[in-house]
Amino acid sequence: MGDKPVHTTAKSWVDPSPWLPSQVPVSFLSTNGNTRQFDSTHGPLERAYPGPSTELLLTAYRKMVLGRRFDEQATTLARQGRLAVHPSSLGQEACQVGAALALRATDWLFPTYRDCVALVSRGIDPIEALTLLRGDAHCGYDPVLHRTAPQCTPLATHAAHATGLAHGERLKGTDTVALALVGDGATSEGDFHEALNLAGVLKAPVVFLVQNNGYAISVPLSEQCAAPSLAYKGIGYGIRAEQVDGNDAEAVLAVLTVAVEDARAGGGPWLVEAHTYRMGPHTSADDPSRYRTAAEADRWRERDPIDRLESALRERGLLTEADTKAAAAEAEVYAADIRERLATDPELALQNLCDHVFATPPPHLAAQGALLRTELESR
């Protein structure tokens, strides 16, 4: 008997180049902020990343200065007990502001607990952005109004939500894009891989921005991933990937703008890894000196994202001393307003404890709420 034909559903060979990231992170600015002599094409497919407009760069600079002052003020408030905890994003401003500015008002942002700077850059009231960290409510802002999902504390669970929303919006016929912010630690979670796999299969218009700050709390990247870079995880799911200097605001804006608009146009999902550094502790309860050296932190401070962008804008004659002082003054007014509004204790109603847990409360929760209200009224 002759050999029987083998039936297979395996795909024929496909050129993997479209999914591979650039061999080195895309960067427009030198370490000290001076403009590099560069070609706007990077990567194996010679992808083009046009430089952002002057207006966008100036907006990014102002929002980064504002965001850093916000972060510093929030850190102080946590030390004073006005916030339960604060996960600082000091040093990651280019990633968070870049993510906010790359999106349209109709797009959706899916942030984590460390992404308050992205929230305020998107126009959310700073007190509402800090509500979760103050412990007053699960979310202080209206997600639908701001097209911003509640901040996610469990690692990577929101990545699947972003994929589902993006796919749902496409089914409705909109051109909405979802962007999920995740950390390097989240890339080791199963939810992250499930989200990428589903996004790749559905070709959902979603962008995953990994803020690789080198540590998953205290675990260095070298001890959780053996890949050349986290961006290479995209090829396993048929997702276009790129890696970018996350402390270069111009490069972050350039890459994210291309990724978001390509996803919007039907090009499918993107995975962008931003190489950055958390200059502060993991949270206000952490001591980073226990797991990283002062010399390492100093090297990254020399690549401060705000200093680099400011230097580049000054070199191009787009930013003056008066402009920098005006941005700093605006940030001080912003911080003073936060201090004043967080100086008083919130007025919380215990009878609302069972509210907003379910859209339609189940019988047992409704009974608990009624019992609570009866007990409070009897006091």
Rank of each mutant, 00 (worst) to 15 (best):
Q151N: 10
G135R: 10
T54R: 10
Q37P: 03
D136S: 12
A48Q: 15
E93H: 11
R134G: 15
L45M: 14
T112R: 09
A156M: 14
R104I: 06
T59R: 15
D142M: 11
C95L: 04
R147N: 07
A102K: 00
E93K: 08
A48H: 15
D71T: 10
P143F: 00
M64K: 08
T153M: 12
L130K: 09
A118H: 14
V65K: 00
P154T: 01
T76A: 14
R134L: 07
A105K: 08
E93I: 06
R62T: 05
R79K: 15
G67E: 04
L132T: 07
S40R: 10
R47H: 10
R79D: 12
R79E: 11
V65S: 00
Q96S: 02
W108I: 05
G135D: 14
P44D: 03
C95Y: 01
E72G: 01
Y113W: 11
R47Y: 06
A100C: 07
M64L: 06
V120G: 11
I124S: 06
V117A: 10
G43Y: 10
S121T: 03
L66P: 02
S53F: 13
T59S: 12
R134P: 08
R47M: 13
E93T: 06
T112V: 11
P150N: 07
G51H: 07
A102N: 03
L57D: 04
A129W: 04
S121K: 03
H138P: 06
T41C: 13
L109E: 00
F110Y: 15
Y49V: 15
Q96A: 03
D107H: 08
L145Y: 12
Y61E: 11
Q96W: 03
D136Q: 08
A129R: 04
T35Q: 14
R62I: 01
G43T: 03
H146G: 03
A94T: 00
T59W: 03
S40M: 07
G98H: 03
L109G: 04
